[in-house]
């Protein structure tokens, strides 16, 4: 799955971008529209599952900005997801924030954490980067246990009462309603997808891809690669935190599991499955993997086996993932 050899920013149809009809934007909006329409045909069970998947897919989209586009494999993104989760959850329980304010608090926690952590971990590269991100995430997980007085550790805590209603622009949203949850999750995903799309098609996205492809060359073209990597890490971490905050507020549960190493591995798996360095890949990967684990756990408790086998099979046989393979097979314009 070597990122160095993965398919890359396809040839950009320069002329096409000036035309009124933007094929790339159209495809991504269509994907979001399908997700919007899906809520009218799905059973209650799949309705709820898809809401969850969309929040987790936002996490994967954020992860992919760093891994897929900048070429930095983090094994510690659980800390950013958890920063959003706890940021929002603790703001609600300890500081009595409302739902919207708690959501912003979660995002802010992720922004601050990813900036600080980024400034330290980006002093390393390659394999050390992976290990060090993993270590910091583990420290974060241990802290969520250590401060059990507030976090209630592994057991976690449930959000109840007023926090289950969000107030925004004078409107009230009942977060216990499946329809509201679904559409908020979709809105979050839509924002993440559009931000990611805009980013990777911008001059900055081009720099990030250049860093992934050949960091030394990017530096010799005049780019401060450290600053650009930090930017990517902060965007990635903040989106992950937004997903975490949304998860806490929509599904009303905050627990240390979400800070554990498993939640650093899962986004990696989702992105690998869907396609490294593609905008829609993480969504597809999250969806498929979620259902794969869901289906296997109906027959056996061995869901970890599914995850393990999937990781190895992807690396051995399918390193570019679904969308990445499609792109190689002719859809070269997909970002």
């Amino acid at each position: 799955m070597s990122v160095d050899s993965s398919p890359i920013q396809p040839t950009k149809p320069v002329a096409g971008r000036r035309s009124l009809f933007d094929k790339v934007l159209f495809v991504h909006l269509a994907a979001l529209a399908i997700l919007f329409l899906a809520q009218f045909v799905l059973s209650d069970y799949h309705h709820l599952t898809l809401a969850r998947v969309m929040v987790l897919a936002s996490f994967a989209v954020g992860y992919n900005i760093l891994f897929g586009y900048t070429g930095l494999l983090s094994l510690g993104h659980a800390m950013f997801f958890a920063a959003g989760l706890y940021g929002a959850g603790l703001a609600a329980t300890q500081l009595s924030f409302g739902a919207s304010e708690a959501f912003l608090a979660g995002i802010f926690a992720g922004l601050v954490l990813s900036t600080l952590i980024g400034m330290i971990v980006l002093r390393t590269s390659g394999v050390s980067f992976m290990i060090v991100t993993m270590m910091f995430a583990q420290a974060g997980y241990l802290m969520s246990l250590y401060f059990g007085e507030f976090t209630r550790g592994d057991e976690g805590f449930v959000l109840q009462g007023d926090i289950r209603t969000a107030h925004l622009f004078g409107l009230s949203f009942d977060l216990t309603s499946p329809d509201v949850r679904y559409n908020i999750a979709l809105a979050l995903l839509a924002v993440c997808v559009l931000v990611c799309l805009a980013l990777v098609r911008s001059p900055i996205g081009r720099i990030l891809i250049a860093i992934r492809e050949n960091e030394e060359r990017a530096r010799m073209l005049g780019y401060d690669t450290y600053r650009n990597k930090l930017f990517a890490l902060v965007v990635s971490g903040t989106i992950s935190a937004a997903a975490g905050a949304a998860y806490a507020l929509l599904f009303a549960y905050v627990g240390a599991t979400f800070a554990s190493i498993q939640y650093s591995i899962l986004p990696l798996l989702w992105v690998l499955l869907g396609g490294v360095g593609t905008v829609l890949g993480p969504i597809l990967g999250t969806l498929l993997m979620f259902y794969l684990v869901d289906i296997t756990s109906e027959y056996t408790s061995a869901y970890m086996l599914a995850v393990g086998v999937a990781l190895i099979a992807l690396v051995l046989f399918f390193p570019k993932g679904i969308i990445g393979t499609l792109r190689d097979k002719g859809l070269k314009w997909l970002p």
């Binding site: 050899s5 398919p7 920013q9 040839t11 950009k12 001059p203 891809i209 492809e213 060359r217 990017a218």
Partner: peptide, 13 residues
């Protein structure tokens, strides 16, 4: 050069 990028993107950088 950035072998996986287009000629355009190489120069655009």
């Amino acid at each position: 050069i950035f072998a996986n990028l287009s000629v355009y993107d190489n120069v655009a950088l």
